[in-house]
Design a protein around this nucleic acid. Structure first.
Lengths: 234, 234
DNA sequence: CGTCGACTTGAGTTAACTCAAATCATGTGG
DNA sequence: CCACATGATTTGAGTTAACTCAAGTCGACG
């Protein structure tokens, strides 16, 4: 597949004319990263942004003592690092390849001139950033106003939704990483899944599959209407 | 001051021609709200967005049992509610007038057609949303990776910066509201200020003025490099 | 079959919470 | 100007959700 054809598959670029795609393909750079590679670091100057083509990329913040909070997980077709481009700022977080990945890199200036000529591209970008603000607002809500069991419940419902409403959801990331998405640690996540299983809200052996047994209950847990009763202790 | 003149003072609209301002002024609606009034609620359909002209507006999430997390505080010249416009979604949070306020309301469709004709307006909007994503990322980092004293320290340093780097900072909101900005409760904030005073990081009587006594120390506290030693108890 | 990383379980600690009471600040009517 | 009502803030005492640290257990892979 040519670079131009690849560009055409990116939903952000749906509105571009063949000529624009041609022009874009001449300024774009394809890069490969191995699992664990840092693509950019917080505080680095952002001279362009990226789109994932293959693999997965996580965007995260790190604390002084090494704890991580994952902000985004991006897969094929999804752009990242645009904030630094538009705000004229340094990257606000770290980007790391979770698997061997290939990304396209778009230098800032060329992209900005393109966007100024394509109102629809601008609108797509505005919609994209708005969508992310929306997600961030929900994450802030979760971190500040919900307890860990509520966040776990919300995540399971979100996954179920994303996977077509099924009750058999498949965790799309390792549990340790999921803990970092939910603003907690693996030990706590593990205990919460155990308790949710005991309360018959879900069925979970240790695998990456979780069956939703009581959707209503999970919803109440996610909204804060109910809490998990404290584990029996013995 | 005419509506058009008011529009010209809004930095988001700097790039607009007099003709565009004229057009905009014909679709905009001026609204007044009293302290405590809800301007919009989470989940409401967003048919337009707002710009504060006078007063102050807070944007917040509320938990099931009534606790609040403030996402933004906006004053004159600042737009809010745009996310719903661009993402084609409902409002993600509540907006409430903190004082008697006047806001301008811009219906969605008219604004979108305007933005499509003004690349610079689009760029301003992109920069604005990027800036907010940046702030949200920092708030998420604070909530997830920092303890309350670190958030308080970071906020004081931010205020000092905003107020020109002075060591005598003036809290711009009531402490109860500040607690809600920082993701904690008034009691905890009060105790942290006491402890920070005991440790000679700041000087604080009960008023809304705080003197920064040890900037380096505050910075280390904000970054997580050091912690507040536990209060003596007696 | 052994090793490695990921996950789970156990025990103890702690930061921040809740609830209750005291104090302070501000504006009002007498 | 004073006394009081109202709301904001502080202080006190006790509880708890989630953390840390340590010790298994499990599963995949060479």
């Amino acid at each position: 597949m040519t670079l131009k054809e690849q560009l055409a598959t990116i939903s952000l670029f749906q509105s571009l004319s063949p000529a624009d795609l041609e022009r874009l393909s001449s300024i774009v750079v394809s890069q490969r990263f191995s699992r664990g590679d840092i693509i950019f670091s917080e505080g680095e100057e952002g001279r362009g942004f990226y789109v994932v083509m293959e693999g997965r990329v996580k965007i995260f913040k790190a604390s002084f003592d090494g704890k991580e909070q994952i902000l985004h997980l991006f897969g094929p077709g999804e752009p990242f690092g645009e904030v630094a481009v538009f705000a004229g700022r340094t990257f606000p977080a770290y980007a790391e390849a979770m698997e061997n990945s290939r990304v396209l890199y778009f230098p800032r200036t060329a992209f900005i001139s393109l966007i100024q000529k394509n109102p629809l591209l601008a609108m797509n970008m505005l919609a994209m950033l708005s969508e992310r603000l929306h997600r961030f607002a929900r994450l802030i809500e979760d971190l500040s106003l919900k307890e860990v069991p509520g966040r776990v419940a919300a995540y399971l419902l979100y996954l179920s939704d994303k996977q077509g409403g099924t009750s058999d959801v498949v965790l799309d990331i390792a549990k340790g990483q999921l803990a970092s998405v939910l603003g907690t640690i693996p030990e706590t996540l593990s205990r919460m899944l155990t308790r949710m299983t005991q309360e018959k809200l879900i069925a979970s052996d240790g695998s990456n599959k979780v069956r939703i047994e009581d959707r209503k209950g999970l919803e109440k847990l996610a909204s804060g209407e109910i809490r998990l009763s404290k584990s029996a202790g013995q």
